[in-house]
Design a protein around this nucleic acid. Sequence first.
DNA 1: TAATCGTAGATAAAAAATATCCACGATTAG
DNA 2: CTAATCGTGGATATTTTTTATCTACGATTA
Lengths: 167, 167
Amino acid sequence: MKLGDGVEQAIHSVTMLSCLQPGSTLSAAALAEFHGVSTSYLLKHLQAMSGAGLLEAVPGPKGGYRLAKAPEKITLLDIVLAVEGPEPAFRCNEIRLRGPNPYACKPTAPCTINVAMLKAEQAYRAELRRVTIAGILDDLNAKDDGSISARTKAFLAINERKSSASA
Amino acid sequence: MKLGDGVEQAIHSVTMLSCLQPGSTLSAAALAEFHGVSTSYLLKHLQAMSGAGLLEAVPGPKGGYRLAKAPEKITLLDIVLAVEGPEPAFRCNEIRLRGPNPYACKPTAPCTINVAMLKAEQAYRAELRRVTIAGILDDLNAKDDGSISARTKAFLAINERKSSASA
DNA sequence: TAATCGTAGATAAAAAATATCCACGATTAG
DNA sequence: CTAATCGTGGATATTTTTTATCTACGATTA
């Protein structure tokens, strides 16, 4: 079981976007450069999140991405599902129906093993749903030692763009 | 995020082994045929579980596999970890330390995002730890409609082997 | 109108999962 | 004893998924 690296990049991208001044955007190219991957690749995830209603894509020479809703309304689960897809990690192949079977049950009843695996995944998702971007931001602000805040502002100053005209 | 098919085969294999008469074994070949995969392939998972102390390998002409401990003591988590490995699904790449960073925190402090993802995975594992093979067996017996029990016995009759001499 | 941006689809490269084979050592039924 | 059966371990091939990139296109706006 492994979670793709794209998920991590996506989460960090959203967190960065949540630091923007209201109305500003960050281009896909800037975000991609930050993560050290090609723009085209990060775009795949940005577009997925845009399609899921988490981000908003602003076109035009000073366009880019920004949050589509408040940081309090975006959870880690939203991001993970948008990037990795909604399918559960465990896919039941109905092995229980194979051959002469020492533990088979009625085909009409759900596979007990599948139920257990899915329930565990529900617990996983419930935990992710509890974590909002706003919460992560709070936590980061509490931990920030100040010395990195300067670099922070530099990054924003370089890459942040006003998109007030787009409204 | 996807769980390999091997996990499902492993769980079903353990469940089948838990139906054996005490002292009996089921050969890797029989289990592999049941799952429709090559013996060599299933062996990889059986050996992993044997190494993890879940199964016991009995050598010799009438050897095979059997449970190494009581069904009450084997959980789904044991099996998943034995087959998939102990690494968490989310691996933090310390993206927060990259470049001029709008939300970086002290490198000495743990990555907030990583903590959240790992916590979710702990919830997932806790849920799997709650499910024992014995519990699954109880559930299956409750659902069993009887018509498949006959086939069940046929399978066991064909493939079950006494390994009383090995003790 | 020309630069910048996102969109979409095709495509290539890398990694992981899946699956198989073979040579070896251990065990035990006959 | 010995031959058959079984698991062990390593090497290897195949397939699928993931990761990553490129190119042509359409939309927007300075």
